[in-house]
Design a protein around this nucleic acid. Structure first.
Lengths: 349, 349
DNA sequence: TAATTTTATGCTATCGATTGCACAACAAAC
DNA sequence: GTTTGTTGTGCAATCGATAGCATAAAATTA
């Protein structure tokens, strides 16, 4: 493989359509057409060229191709802080599913900090065909760039701020479902620990939860939170544990599994049993929260489907096709763990 | 911004050197030189062109530039299964540090499965300037491709298999250090839970640990393991907890924090106290293991430095410069948590 | 057999940015 | 007032792949 057996190897450089053409005694355009299965090329010639290309290990230069074709095959990816396992899981699915469609990911940002201008510019410099933003917070620069340059944009796990399509779980329904179940199971003093107060995801989940608590005529839930982190959940858990038993909630929603893990850790560390003394539920369905010691009862987001729909949305907007922004909401699925007391009817099945 | 105020806007397309040149009344080459600060362009002309470019929001097409220059500015990134927080942390640092050098990451793979041929080919198709592999296991296809095509390659957190440079922590020393400390603190029955038996990282860490146990004249450590996962650690923890108290180890090393978390979860679930009844230590220093309820005593890898050295190694091998493969080993740093009984001398400071 | 259509291939321009070389314009020097 | 030297720009080729158009050869038809 490293010693191409043919007559006109490019001087220790890589093979190109031109060098292949020289070696095969045809024109560069013929090589290009043969490799793209253009029906106008005769079977014999095509066969000869394809064989040669394989023998020498020819790899097309996508950069050159996209220069003329206009499609880079690149999708920009902006990730939130990956200490939250949700983002890591989203990333993994993004890579896999993008690859299945022949696209590659240009990873421009990952982390808690705001995205820098130079970083956001890379989306344009590399002529990405589309962009996926999964950060709940600091996506503004990237979103603006996409808007100003007609780059298809889809937000995953957050709704669009002013431009772009979005795919998310029905967050309000998830919060409501959990409230209903907890109440049905007999919980009477509820609490909710929110995440970042500026993100739609956190707000909706808490809203749905609180709405059902009120609808049931129960006292207003206690509220904690402030950021989507284990630390904030832990703080809230400590505060809850410090309450006198008579005032302490008997069930808590962490609006993300990540937060709920922190809550549970704090409660247990304070000597409370979960779910014996207090129920804890989350939303997201991340793997880390499904493992012991958490075994979280949660509403899992259909991440696989969400990413698939996200790529569909991008695909429909590529190649200059203009379409109205679209918001897709998928229903999450209840995952019965062992972190909360639930209605008996659910424990049978 | 979306309404360029100038006379010759490209017909709703993006601006190019050519359209800028037309608008500025100069040649394309002049635009190019002005934007690259070529000293041969007069200050006035340069100023005029730069201002115009900024006004209309011109973004150079990197694909076209790399076609002539030969440098794509892309670094291929191959990640292991990101359920292990270590990989997520490495990724975050890779993005940040690459961006600081003006490079972007082409994320070609992330996950437990083997890397597909089509995926590995993307490294060549996009003409990456270098490649980083942080997967402990399934990197072969990518490594082979890099070797056969003189693509600079550096493995992070594993030693090179047959080609490529590598950056890793002094794994053997880390294992040995932890053994020494545990023994000094009075532990006598030690155990080690390994990861994937084919990875150098796991082997070395266990080796260093076992070596020191033997050197101290203590009985051969119990051995568990088989994969670098929370589940395997959990299994090992359950097995350890099931042993009669007289045979049960009083200290366990999980060769990664991820494994050690699983061990600790199982021990605690079985009613054992950590570190009261049994000490648990890990290696890696991931954030998840530093949080409650783990507060892991561990040897932290200097991830920031490791990634920096990795990029240095790539940089030195770019632009066709050929250098011998290089292996860099950095020393890890002890992090004193609360998961193990340690020598009193350490607890003072 | 000439005229026409089909088929297979080559020539050449193109995408956008860069760069070697040529060449104006102007200043300095004899 | 011609010659030499310096500066600043433009022209044209290049990178690698693709696509429109032209054309030679072959196959079909009149």
């Amino acid at each position: 493989m490293s010693q191409p057996p043919h007559s006109a190897p490019p001087r220790s450089e890589r093979w190109t359509v031109a060098s292949l053409a020289r070696a095969a005694g045809v024109a560069a355009s013929t090589v290009s057409r043969a490799l793209r299965n253009d029906p106008r090329i005769s079977p014999e010639v095509r066969e000869r060229i394809v064989t040669l290309a394989q023998e020498v290990g020819y790899t097309p230069n996508v950069l050159a191709r996209s220069l003329v074709g206009g499609n880079s095959g690149l999708i920009g990816l902006v990730l939130g802080p990956v200490e939250n396992p949700l983002y890591a899981e989203l990333m993994q699915r993004a890579v896999t599913q993008a690859a299945a469609r022949g696209w590659r990911l240009l990873l421009v940002h990952a982390g808690p900090g705001p995205i820098e201008q130079a970083t956001a510019d890379a989306l344009l410099q590399y002529r990405v065909d589309g962009c996926i933003i999964t950060s709940a917070e600091l996506s503004s620069r990237a979103a603006i760039i996409c808007r100003d340059n007609q780059v298809p944009l889809v937000m995953v796990n957050r709704v669009a701020w002013e431009h772009g399509s979005a795919v998310s779980c029905d967050n309000e329904a998830a919060g409501a479902l959990l409230a209903d179940l907890l109440i049905e199971a007999g919980h009477r003093r509820l609490a909710v620990v929110s995440g970042n107060p500026t993100t739609s995801t956190s707000i909706k989940r808490a809203d749905g939860f609180i709405r059902q608590v009120r609808a049931a005529g129960l006292p207003e839930p206690l509220r904690f939170g402030g950021a989507n982190s284990h630390a904030k959940g832990f703080e809230a858990g400590q505060a809850i544990a410090a309450l006198p038993a008579s005032e302490r909630p008997d069930a808590v929603l962490g609006v993300s599994d990540f937060i709920a893990m922190g809550i549970m850790d704090a409660l247990r560390e304070a000597g409370l049993r979960v779910p014996g003394d207090i129920s804890v539920v989350g939303i997201d369905g991340v793997g880390a929260a499904q493992r012991p010691p958490y075994r979280m009862t949660t509403v899992a987001q259909p991440l696989e489907d969400m990413m698939e729909r996200a790529l569909d949305l991008l695909n429909a907007r590529m190649n200059g096709v203009h379409r109205a922004d679209e918001v897709v909401t998928l229903r999450g699925e209840l995952v019965i763990g062992q972190s909360a007391r639930l209605p008996a009817r659910l424990l049978a099945g």
